[in-house]
Design a protein around this nucleic acid. Structure first.
Lengths: 151, 151
DNA sequence: TTTACTGCAAACTATTTGCAGATCC
DNA sequence: GGATCTGCAAATAGTTTGCAGTAAA
């Protein structure tokens, strides 16, 4: 656990000439307090914060989710159709991949360190600085295979 | 090469109570004639067909790209921000993954059969019918690392 | 002859952007 | 003090949908 603290974020922002704000701290700690494997869309996050009476505007949320993904703090997932979801970008023991049913969107998370290593090696070999590595499997789940509906 | 023929598509459509159309054949053969590694957005495809005076409406393109992805004929990629791209879903020797710079969107394709095998095994283990398996690596390319601009 | 498919135009929705005021450093 | 950040409202853009006519089988 331990992970990324607000002050580590602050330091990294300052390095780039940016600023720490209460909204950014709220967003970071919200993701850290999330149950393992839970991921949020921009709107989910807005609603969750509103429940706790800690309102942050949708545009600020969008701006900061994208920023944190580009910093490698969050990972951006395209699981269900039509909107992005975000989760903390965790290192090796917690890092996982996704298997998704294209019909019902049911998602299975799974770990595979050798895939992660292969990704890291590939990035390194090309001189890229790795931010996130996800194996994305599109498939049809057992239930939907049995369904009589074509599609 | 060889691959999927229009009549194979026709047969598969009929199995599901669907129909073959000239538009569907056009879309399939267009992807087959594409250079290796090239991928198209819905709009790209519309424009490419218009150039060859073989106009297909955008809605028909959207409907069929999604259908063919759900059949496993095409793979749906989210490379650059904001719109999906499609390419032929090729088997083992041509199958590849993507390494993407989150700043400039420069993309490197690479092959890794053991990753593909790990994905197929995982789908099988969960009883899912595999459609596509892609390792998606988000990173910062060498040029953008050197750039002085923060972000 | 039936039902699926296409094309058009309109609708939708997630995300982005311009701007004025607030706030971080 | 000066630049960055936020919140609002409006704009954008990719994609979807309703419908009437067309065409597979």
């Amino acid at each position: 656990m331990a992970a990324y603290t607000p002050s580590a974020l602050k330091a990294e922002l300052h390095e780039r000439g940016w600023r720490m704000t209460p909204q950014r701290e709220t967003i970071l700690t919200t993701f850290q307090n999330l149950e393992k494997g839970e991921h949020l869309s921009a709107e989910d996050l807005r609603d969750l914060l509103a429940q706790e009476d800690d309102r942050v505007s949708l545009s600020t949320i969008y701006r900061n989710l994208k920023m944190m993904a580009r910093m490698g703090i969050l990972r951006e997932l395209e699981l269900a159709e039509g909107h992005k979801r975000y989760e903390l970008n965790q290192p090796a023991p917690h890092h996982h991949h996704h298997l998704i049913c294209v019909r019902c969107n049911k998602t299975v998370e799974f770990k595979n360190d050798s895939v992660l290593k292969a990704g890291a090696k590939m990035a390194d070999k090309s001189g890229y600085h790795l931010l996130d590595c996800q194996l994305l499997i599109h498939a049809v789940c057992p239930t939907c295979q049995r369904s009589l509906l074509p599609s």
